[in-house]
Design a binder for these strands. Sequence first.
DNA 1: CTAATATATCAAGATAACTTGTTATGTCAA
DNA 2: TTGACATAACAAGTTATCTTGATATATTAG
Lengths: 106, 106
Amino acid sequence: MATVVHSRADRAIELFHALSDETRLEIIELLRKGERCVCELTDTLDAAQSRLSFHLRVLKDAGIVRDRKDGRWVHYELVPDAFEEIETLVTEMKPRVVGQATNCCA
Amino acid sequence: MATVVHSRADRAIELFHALSDETRLEIIELLRKGERCVCELTDTLDAAQSRLSFHLRVLKDAGIVRDRKDGRWVHYELVPDAFEEIETLVTEMKPRVVGQATNCCA
DNA sequence: CTAATATATCAAGATAACTTGTTATGTCAA
DNA sequence: TTGACATAACAAGTTATCTTGATATATTAG
């Protein structure tokens, strides 16, 4: 179980990296409709099984999805908390509304 | 001027990719305090100039920062709209609150 | 004009990420 | 128990990204 301790920045990098791939965004889009097994993702996205497995792991390691084993199927679903976390990160990097502050050089 | 037409997904990938690097997050954090010239970023982050230049370009191409030439200095600042755009993207990929929908296989 | 400074760009190498094909593991049906 | 299926993991190759050092361009000071 890949449980690594992250600095704040490392965590942001992990999350944003997980979101910066087309296949993974497609997976997220599909999972918005609810839990899905890998087989259905494979079919819908017309992607090789090992490729899906690779991307699901990236998403899972980042905590964006979780899996549930059910017989020979594994179902994946989104983890709402992860999206809250991402929203917080984005909010915290927005520019402050205040003035331009100290002018360097020139 | 690198102006490429993006699909919605491509745009998301570009933005999230731009945010998935430590140096770039540090740049953003610094620029939250207001406009800065490259020289100051180089000093503060203790990074080689060409490295900063590379990362600033990634951020600029993604529309996250913009530059302003002023004599022999170039000042960079955050583009607030970009963060609104990112927030919207994140909001739109959050799981819907509704039930589990169609159960595949099993 | 010349030298120094600020920045960008480029080329080469290093590292990381992704894809594909293959094999391994577990589960179920016959 | 055997075979088929669902999924994960691995290995090798490919591609993308990042870093570093070198060079190019513009601007200003002297």
